[in-house]
């Protein structure tokens, strides 16, 4: 991802003057080797040139690393993967609609906690080393629509897909909807090269296109504070359900198994 970013920006002539060793320092930067975030080369180069010891920044880095470990170990590995999973197994077994829904919730929240924990550790280590690494998550489950969700979830990958997939495809086809679906398909395949993640990308891509169409025709909600708060709450609730239900595609091993989960969720309540 970072090599493609570098190659394209270099091709466009948009990178500042730099040397080979600085490029190597960018690619071989330990904190972002595991799971990103996908930091841009110009930002890295700026910090490489300007970095200096700052005890306050170092302290913030330690806090961020501890916060990341707490997320992964306490929330992800213990609270969600053990206690919450145990609660679901004991009270709402697989095959019941509530059980399937809660399992989607467990999978999605664990993925978020684990991934944002990894990002926190990387960002914290970066700060401890004098580098400001780009943020990757910004409370995505509070997004009021699916477009906003993707501006808050894995932000650096979304930004990468916007720059190197969405914009070129949109420019070539003049069809933003096709570009959106293509970008989301690539984003899905980035997670795993399998049919379930192709479908997962398609699900989100179609969701964003539908949201964009709805946005252009939706009735005016009104300017009142109460209307706006109600609209935001309703949007957040719908987006949350839409995203949680998408995890059925990601957590099941085959599309057929995911289809069984959706069947239970749609027909099992009555």
């Amino acid at each position: 991802m970072r090599v493609i970013h570098y190659a394209v920006e270099r091709y466009k002539g948009k990178l500042p003057e730099h040397r080979l060793d600085q490029y190597l320092c960018y690619l071989f930067f330990l904190p972002i080797i595991f799971a990103g975030p996908i930091t841009g080369f110009p930002d890295f180069l700026r910090d490489l040139r300007r970095r200096r010891w700052d005890a306050a920044v170092f302290s913030r880095g330690i806090e961020r690393v501890v916060s990341g470990y707490a997320k992964i170990v306490v929330l992800g590995n213990y609270a969600i993967s053990i206690r919450f999973a145990q609660y679901i197994n004991d009270n709402h077994p697989s095959g019941t609609p509530l059980g399937e829904y809660l399992d989607c919730l467990r999978f999605g929240s664990n993925l978020y906690i684990q991934f944002s924990g990894y990002s926190d550790i990387a960002i914290g280590l970066g700060l401890m080393m004098g580098f400001r690494i780009a943020e990757n998550f910004r409370l995505p489950f509070l997004a009021a629509n699916i477009g906003e969700f993707w501006q808050r979830w894995h932000m650096t990958l979304t930004g990468w897909c916007r720059s190197y997939i969405y914009l070129p495809v949109a420019a070539a086809t003049r069809r933003p909807a096709a570009a959106t679906v293509t970008a989301m398909l690539v984003l899905g395949i980035w997670h795993d090269v399998s049919m379930r993640f192709v479908l997962w990308g398609l699900y989100h891509g179609v969701g964003i296109v539908v949201w964009q169409r709805f946005r252009s025709i939706r009735p005016e909600i009104g300017d009142g504070v109460l209307s706006r708060i109600t609209g935001r709450l309703l949007g957040t609730l719908i987006t949350f359900q839409f995203v949680i239900l998408s995890f059925a595609l990601a957590k099941e091993n085959t599309p057929a198994a995911a289809a069984r989960v959706y069947t239970v969720l749609l027909t099992g309540w009555w």
Partner: peptide, 13 residues
């Protein structure tokens, strides 16, 4: 300093 970190990353990998 940055080169030392890059070298360490290469060894680690």
């Amino acid at each position: 300093q940055p080169h030392a970190v890059a070298a360490l990353t290469l060894v680690f990998l």
